[in-house]
Design a protein around this nucleic acid. Structure first.
Lengths: 258, 258
DNA sequence: CGGTATTTTGAGTATCGTCAAGGCCAGTGG
DNA sequence: CCACTGGCCTTGACGATACTCAAAATACCG
């Protein structure tokens, strides 16, 4: 993992106007963005950009899943977030970032070189506003994730992770689907990555998936696919007794693509 | 706790130009900010604004410490961040926030009503840029905090918390000082708050403070004040083997106000 | 000085990490 | 077509860690 191999991309033609989040932008701004954008493909495990340096570009995820992470010299890895379709990453106007970005699966992204992108930011207040709102949103999600991480029992964290997949990844990359009339969640990353996200070990993750299955909360169709049998029980397992949340999940599951 | 009592504040006169982070702003923008700003005092435990609603203002912390938190109906509390002198809080252009803000100690803040503040944002690109950079910074800190939370042993999280206090709170509110030639850290929040921040219980926090003391890493002067006896050991206890970090802490401790 | 809240300590138990072995699947090469 | 290999996932046993409940000690405040 962490190889730097990259595949060359062609400039322009990123169909940015088709992207929901960007549709509100002025046509002229969109055209300029499209001008400076290079589309690029990454294989799973390849590094999109490293920690400790100035990020060379702002990225926009088209397909696939990326990990935001920090690797320590002793081999420990912390994953502090996942990036999916439609997410923007890379800080503007920063000299160095603390976290690297790696492809967790095959991924297709758009790269906007920082120089031109930052110049465009200055000319297009609406784009700057968009970046501010997106960053605020990311911060909010990071804090939500912290409340999951702060649960002492790993089972609560794991259940919270599954619910997060349902709520946020719905409709993305076949994460959520309905196969035999029951909602099915596809966990798009390895046990080890899940463990790194949750601050635990792969063995414990495995044990707890099976514990949830034994209690009838979910069924394991294959190591990456889980049928949700009892949403309410899963929400209870997450220790999350906010009624709004169970509604949000039921809602997300209801809208899952068959 | 969580009372809504507020003390009335007088508009203007917030001496915003004296604030390091805002000094780069145009004088005219600063004057406008000063116009719309109301200074307000909060007692420890009082709510600055609640979760689930549109935040009524953007806040700027002058003195004291605030908690960003979520309270669950069953009484559990998650603290996802602390705000100190110079921090800005409150999202712009958002309908509802997920987290409430409460005073952890007596606090003095400036309130910028959202309407006028957002209007000013549109007229002053440099202010919007400032907000973007601050939010990016907050996001980075939140992710750093996540890497501390993801450690399985509470001792690592507690040591990481102490080091964070040294690095970030240096020079603020007497958190860091040198009393008998040795650096002394003042933990400005209760054991319970520390526990909520670290995802554990006050008993465990207490036990681990004393365990660190028994090993000679630190000395407990009173329940809120700790003398750091062995910085290197503390960094090791945090499980953080990035050489940059020990340097940063030694540096911060060296600059501590005597 | 008394009353209350906070912190500390103790004992017992649940949870999780660690180490080690075994199983499953996909891709490879005979 | 089948054995072999390597990666991932699973399972088991044991010990370490932290949570729970309960009580005592200390600090705080009027």
């Amino acid at each position: 993992m962490a190889k730097v191999t990259k595949h060359a991309g062609a400039p322009g033609r990123c169909e940015l106007s088709a992207v929901p989040g960007l549709a509100t932008l002025d046509a002229a701004v969109l055209a300029e963005l499209d001008q400076i954008c290079h589309r690029q493909h990454y294989e799973a495990g390849h590094e999109v950009f490293p920690a400790g340096e100035e990020p060379p570009f702002i990225g926009f995820v088209h397909t696939g899943i990326l990990r935001i992470q920090k690797r320590l010299p002793d081999g420990r890895t912390y994953i502090v977030g996942l990036l999916i379709q439609g997410d923007v990453f890379g800080q503007v106007f920063e000299e160095a970032v603390n976290f690297s970005v790696e492809a967790a699966t095959q991924a297709e992204i758009c790269r906007f070189p920082r120089g031109p992108f930052e110049a465009l930011l200055g000319r297009a207040p609406e784009l700057e506003r968009l970046m501010l709102l997106r960053t605020q949103n990311e911060l909010d999600r990071a804090r939500d994730w912290m409340t999951i991480l702060a649960n002492h029992r790993v089972e609560e964290r794991l259940a919270g992770f599954l619910l997060m997949l349902c709520k946020r990844f719905n409709g993305i990359d076949h994460v959520l689907s309905v196969d035999h009339g029951r909602p099915e969640v596809h966990v798009p990353i390895s046990r080890e990555d899940v463990a790194h996200l949750l601050g635990t070990r792969p063995e414990t993750v495995s044990r707890l998936f099976h514990a949830l299955a034994d209690r009838g909360v979910l069924a394991i169709r294959d190591p990456a696919r889980f049928e949700i049998l009892d949403v309410a029980a899963l929400v209870r397992a997450a220790g999350d007794n906010e009624p709004e949340d169970i509604d949000a999940v039921v809602d997300a599951l209801g809208k899952a693509t068959p």
